[in-house]
Design a protein around this nucleic acid. Structure first.
Ligand SMILES: [Mn+2]
Ligand SMILES: [Mn+2]
Ligand SMILES: [Zn+2]
Ligand SMILES: [Zn+2]
Lengths: 139, 139
DNA sequence: TATATTTTTGCAATCATTACAGATTTATAA
DNA sequence: TTATAAATCTGTAATGATTGCAAAAATATA
């Protein structure tokens, strides 16, 4: 994962004009690696930016996606989560504590040779189950 | 993938009473491997069962899921698709023609050793890009 | 400073899904 | 068979996430 020192510059480098809202939203994603939902982001930033509109959160995340600095994590069909870590990695969700874990994944590990002549632009790998601590609590 | 001769019996074997609606919905999934949406299933069966309710389609698919004979394919966040092939396999979606392709995947191929002490109950592997024929059409 | 452009906001509209209650069908027992 | 109970199905209303849109606010340009 890339470490970003200056969010404003990072946005500029990716063709995004760094408004207050955009900076705070990206900053929130960086500091909250639990892959928050729109609602989580909106509610969390409402203190800091009392005038913030949920539409702005939606618009901003869409902009971030289109510029490739944010990805959707779609591990559950009823909740859309966002991830500013665009490096190749997988996601595990514990069905008990609902926590979402990142995990590393060798790109080559999944290089499917069944797709001769196909062009693969996106890949998502999702696992679900019970995490270590939830499992030990069950004993 | 398991080949099912008798849908009614298959439902019974999986603890589901085989009503007309349930049989036709499962049958539709078997015969239409493009992983249809609720809308597609509902519209397609409306001729055969003019009284069919969309609620029934939702309820039935939920029942099938709970009995483990149908899985959700959540490759796009705005469309929920259903799959009666519960064997382990991955999905590829062509962003041009929108077709959804199954692909085989060795279970062991993806057995992540990073999850010592975790219990994995579900895994989904989604790829997106351009399929062979769409790529060749672009030339 | 005046004007144009971009961004944000708030609310209405849309769309998929769920809740619910009544109708219909199927199972059970007299 | 007939009456009663249980299960299933249906139609509509409610919910909730997302999008559309037009006005307001902020920022850039002349
Ligand atoms: Mn992640
Ligand atoms: Mn499939
Ligand atoms: Zn857990
Ligand atoms: Zn294609």
């Amino acid at each position: 994962m890339v470490i970003i020192q200056n969010v404003g510059q990072y946005l500029l480098d990716n063709g995004i004009k760094p408004s207050i809202q955009r900076i705070k939203i990206f900053d929130f994603l960086m500091k909250n690696h639990e892959h928050p939902t729109v609602d989580k982001i909106f509610l969390s930033l409402s203190d800091e930016i009392p005038t913030l509109s949920k539409t702005t959160v939606y618009n901003t995340l869409k902009l971030f996606q289109s510029q490739g600095i944010v990805n959707i994590v779609n591990i559950e069909d009823h909740e859309t989560r966002y991830d500013c870590d665009t490096s190749f990695h997988g996601h595990f969700k514990c069905l008990e504590c609902k926590n979402l874990y990142d995990f590393e994944l060798e790109n080559t590990e999944l290089n499917i040779n069944k797709f001769e002549g196909f062009k693969i632009t996106e890949s998502h790998y999702y696992l679900k189950g019970l995490c270590k601590s939830c499992l030990s609590n069950k004993i």
